[in-house]
Amino acid sequence: MQSVITNTNQLEAIALKVREHIIKMSTDGGCFVGASLSAADLIVYLYSEFLNVNPNNLTDPNRDYLFLSKGHDVPALYGTFAELGLLDKDRLKNHLSLSDNIYWHPNTKIPGIEFHSGSLGHLPSVAIGVAMDIKIKGGNNKVVCIMGDGELNEGTCWEAVLVANAYKLDNLIFVIDRNHFQANMATEDLIPLEPLHDKFTAFGASVKRINGHSFEALHEAFSAFPFETGKLNVVIADTVRGKGLPSIERRADRWFCNFSATEVEDLLKELHGEHTTQLTSETLVVR
């Protein structure tokens, strides 16, 4: 990979479209809109620039792998799939419909989804198994597992870091979407995570901490892969929950939202900077 990124404007345009899809999926039943918006830039970058995944190689054993352990961010994943040609855009209208498999968490019946997720803390171990298999077979595939920061309260995540380093899985990257919220509470008010960089380092990983909304920073970090020979790679991506919508950014009560059609239209205008949306408390659905 080149160390200098030249298509930032294109990536930003794709990410904007993905955020539009997320907002549109936040009605008629709703979705986990805040966390999906925080992860959008990460997912767009990984599929556009880093991973060897495209509509023609979804079952190729030489493809790269992405596991979305924080499965409630799937609107960002499906939105990215739609923009990059892995999923028909019209299918996004079937969100939560009985006629399709597009709902609140990833489903392997959708081409490109490698594993079901939703129960937090499980997919780091799945990613380890795939990375170990690739190592045994002498492959060059890259394996990425996206995790939430609140998910790190699961002990299995830290066990996975220990195991990954024990087996020198430098073909594996754990990406932490560090938006500082766990469900409807700030992480540091529940079970403090910091100093997160030091904790991963103490567990033996090679760690980079970056701005998760900067495509330049993302590219600089992932261009250095593997960060150190024989060590698990960890990227802590500092993000903003609800990124792109000032009316819900960094709000603990905007975890899961079910907006009306009118509110969705207003939010789309806000996304494009036309005005700031005023949302009532009745909009909120907490799960």
Rank of each mutant, 00 (worst) to 15 (best):
H95M: 15
M185D: 12
N54L: 12
L268I: 15
L84P: 06
G71K: 04
R63T: 06
N56D: 09
G155V: 04
E220G: 06
C31W: 03
S38D: 07
A164T: 12
N57D: 06
N94G: 06
L190S: 15
L98M: 15
M147E: 00
F256L: 15
K135D: 00
K199S: 04
D177W: 02
E49T: 09
L279K: 05
A40K: 01
L37D: 07
H105T: 13
Q278H: 13
E188M: 11
N62R: 12
L51H: 00
R250E: 15
C145S: 11
G118I: 05
F203R: 09
K142H: 10
G212E: 09
D73M: 15
D189E: 14
A131Q: 11
R178H: 06
L218H: 02
D64V: 01
A40G: 08
L77P: 05
I102K: 05
S223K: 07
V285Q: 12
V234P: 09
R241G: 05
L37M: 15
P226M: 04
G204E: 06
R254D: 05
V44K: 01
P195H: 02
A183V: 14
N211F: 07
T239W: 09
S214C: 09
D149F: 04
I134F: 11
R241Y: 01
V4W: 00
N153A: 12
E194K: 11
D100P: 09
L232I: 04
I22G: 05
D266R: 10
F215T: 10
D177L: 00
A13Y: 06
S206N: 10
E274G: 06
L86C: 07
S3I: 13
F256T: 06
L284A: 14
E270M: 01
I113Q: 01
N153R: 08
L268R: 08
L37G: 13
N56A: 11
K70F: 01
E228W: 06
E265M: 08
E228L: 11
K135M: 02
K109T: 10
E282V: 03
H219V: 04
E49W: 01
L86Y: 03
A205H: 00
V126M: 05
G79T: 00
T156C: 10
L190T: 14
L279C: 04
R19A: 07
S99V: 12
L86R: 01
N233W: 08
T229Q: 14
D266N: 14
D238S: 08
F181N: 08
F50K: 03
L218C: 03
R209F: 08
I110N: 12
H197P: 05
N101A: 14
L58T: 08
S117N: 10
T262V: 13
V240W: 02
H122T: 15
E154D: 02
D189M: 11
T6M: 12
N211E: 13
V161G: 05
H219N: 15
F67L: 15
V264A: 12
I110Y: 04
E216C: 09
L284K: 13
N56K: 09
G230A: 07
L169F: 04
L37E: 09
A217C: 05
F67D: 04
D253W: 03
F81V: 00
I128K: 02
Y167D: 03
S125M: 15
K109S: 10
P55N: 02
D90K: 15
N107I: 05
L172F: 04
A221Q: 02
I43G: 05
Y78S: 00
G155D: 03
A127Y: 10
R91L: 14
G155F: 05
D198F: 10
D238H: 06
I191D: 07
L68P: 03
S119Q: 09
